[in-house]
Computed example of a mutant assay.
Amino acid sequence: MPRTPGQRAGLTYDAVLAAARDVFAERGRAGLSMRSVAAHLGVAPNALYSHVADKTALVDALLDDVLGSLAPPPADADPRTGLREVMLATFDLLVTHPGLVPTYLERQGARGPRARALGEAMTVLLARLGVDEDAAGRVVRALIVHTLGYAALATADDASLTPDQLRADLEVTLDWLLVGASRS
């Protein structure tokens, strides 16, 4: 069986993802392209397509990779505490990666396996709060959008509140959302 261009170049998915992280750190979202990642690796752009379908898939993989440092809440955690902690950890993570926040907003979150695992763990906890499966999807989305919004405020160039002040606000408002969700 013939090898694909990516295999002939000695590339792996992890190497492509690491190069995408480097390019993003150096050039931001605007500078991230299949060509720029290929140039960083010293290969032709077509070598990347053995590992990622296109730029959108590359961006999605990059976003999901960042989420890899978040541990899903344990299924036996107190539901409100587990949900609150995963959202606060998400906020903290996003604040340490301010360049990615607009990309998370643009892509409306992340779609990869790590994002799905977090969402599934959140759905388990919501079920333990009595939230049915249909409503759980909406609640997860609301929690993510809410947290992304606070992260966007915290990482804005002209933020009037500090990240610590916004995190304190987020803690309170997450509690409000979770109390409301458990009553639905």
Rank of each mutant, 00 (worst) to 15 (best):
R114N: 05
G109W: 02
L93I: 13
L83K: 02
P79M: 08
D76E: 05
F91L: 15
G109T: 05
A89T: 06
F91W: 13
P74T: 12
A71H: 07
L100M: 04
G82W: 03
T103R: 13
P73C: 05
L93R: 12
L70Q: 08
L70T: 04
F91V: 15
L93H: 06
T81R: 15
Y104K: 14
P102M: 13
G109K: 10
G82Q: 13
P74G: 02
A77L: 07
R111Y: 01
L70C: 03
H97E: 13
A71E: 11
R80H: 01
M87H: 07
A110C: 03
G82R: 07
A75K: 12
P73V: 14
P73M: 14
R111D: 02
L88G: 04
E85P: 01
E85G: 04
E106C: 08
D92E: 12
E106R: 15
L83T: 02
T90R: 15
T90E: 08
R84V: 11
A110L: 06
M87C: 14
A75G: 09
T103I: 15
P102V: 13
P72H: 11
P72D: 04
P74K: 14
E106I: 05
D76F: 00
A75S: 12
E106P: 01
M87E: 08
V101K: 09
L93Q: 06
F91S: 07
L105I: 14
R84T: 11
T90M: 14
L88E: 04
P73Y: 02
V95K: 05
R114M: 10
V86M: 10
T81D: 10
R111P: 00
L94V: 06
A77H: 07
Y104L: 15
T81E: 06
T103K: 06
A110T: 00
V95M: 09
L93W: 03
G109Q: 09
S69L: 13
P73E: 05
